[in-house]
Amino acid sequence: MTYFEFLNEHGITLLLGTVTTVKVLVCSMILYVVISMIFGLMRLSKNPAIQGIATVYIEFFRGTSLLVQLFWAYYVLPFFGISLEAFTAGVVALGLNFGAYGAEIVRAGILAVPKGQWEAAYSLNFTPAKRIKRIIIPQIFPIILPPAANLTVELLKATALVALVTVVDLTFEAKQINSITWLSAQCFGTALLIYYIMARFALVPFLRWLEVLAAKKVGREKI
């Protein structure tokens, strides 16, 4: 069987899997961005209880393996009466795991904003909420976006793991086709290529564009 015949027969299946992968990626991306913002701010709170919660959360999710968290969410949570669908479990585990890494990036970004900006906001008598929202947050984006871009590419790669909790994504389809046809080089090779194209020609340019946009917003032409 030539490679074109293979694509002709199984290309559609792989593309359908790719659509699921993109769905998982988008949902978990939204979740992880929100979580990292919240916990990044909580980590800097002066209240020891709030800071403690954030620290425990971050250390827990960074300290254990994503696969373990994924299986825990899918196979163990039902013991506690919480049955999640495979897709939901996958998105939640990915979001929580990457949110922990993202929170550290947000924290570092906030700390990297020059102290003078805080002092200026104080002296202008801004409320704490306004200080964060109007002065600090807009300035952290050029700082946090480059590491966040790396993390997002890692997230795309990590979405492959949801196949192991029976989400029918690209990896799952590739595995499935492999077990039917035993054309391993073709299916896994094609899957690798699709992941590579998604990362290199869609996700990375998009993230670069965001970086440029954020830099322009604060009046910096180049990062």
Partner: peptide, 19 residues
Amino acid sequence: VEFIRSTPLLIQLFFVYFV
């Protein structure tokens, strides 16, 4: 290097193991 870095380890494992 770029290719290996931007594709999932899981599929690379399958690739090496099955191919």
